[in-house]
């Protein structure tokens, strides 16, 4: 019932704030921690996931009625893996620069639980159009979160923002490495949830 009363606009915004995949649902932590060493890397990974999320949501919502229950997970994974591989080939061909830095993490989108999570929880029960919007919203939420984490880590760790260096020297290198990823994620989560609680 709740979903029926939801407007198209709300479908997008709920992924950004209320159901934010990173700060509220804590999904997809592996790419979140691994790729956010700089704002640009976070942004690229977010957009790559967004691309897969929208397409897989649409495809899965279209085929869901004819997929037998017992094999729905393997079918969804095959569909998702197909889109990820397509994305990987396209990036390799047309954006070799981004592929050189992120190529290692792209295949991991297959096992990103956000993508399978949305397929299970939303796409398999809703129309193709609504599923696309849902994918767009959640994807944007993920992109935004990753960009913010990447930006904070880049500022503290390298003294630059989006590749633009404003502090000389190396910055606090711990923030470029794994411990910094956990610290930044934790503190941003606190801030985000404090803001949500106030509303």
């Amino acid at each position: 019932m709740e979903d029926k009363t939801m407007s198209k606009f709300q479908l997008i915004t709920k992924g950004l704030v209320k159901d934010n995949p990173t700060f509220v649902l804590l999904l997809g932590m592996c790419p979140t921690l691994a790729t956010t060493t700089s704002a640009v890397n976070g942004l690229s990974m977010g957009l790559a996931t967004l691309f897969v999320l929208v397409l897989s949501n649409m495809a899965i919502s279209a085929i869901a009625p004819v997929v037998p229950d017992k094999v729905h997970i393997p079918v969804y994974i095959v569909v998702i893996a197909t889109f990820v591989t397509i994305l990987q080939l396209l990036m390799q061909a047309f954006t070799p620069g981004i592929y050189a830095t992120l190529g290692l993490f792209i295949p991991l989108i297959v096992v990103n639980c956000i993508v399978l999570g949305r397929a299970e929880a939303f796409a398999s029960k809703h129309s193709v159009g609504d599923s696309a919007l849902d994918g767009l919203g959640v994807g944007l939420g993920f992109t935004l979160s990753l960009t913010v984490i990447g930006l904070v880590r880049e500022i503290l760790g390298s003294g630059s923002a989006f590749g633009w260096k404003f502090l000389p020297g190396d910055g606090m290198l711990a923030f470029v490495m794994a411990p910094g990823a956990f610290l930044v994620l934790g503190y941003l989560m606190v801030l985000f949830n404090k803001y949500l609680a106030k509303k």
């Binding site: 017992k70 095959v78 397509i86």
Partner: peptide, 25 residues
């Protein structure tokens, strides 16, 4: 939901999905 999960439907569904995906790739 709609389709019964028997051997025939499962094999048919997985085969079709894999074929379509392979062709696409």
């Amino acid at each position: 939901m709609a389709v019964q999960s028997n051997l025939k439907s499962m094999v048919l569904c997985l085969t079709t999905v894999c074929l379509v995906c392979s062709a696409l790739l």
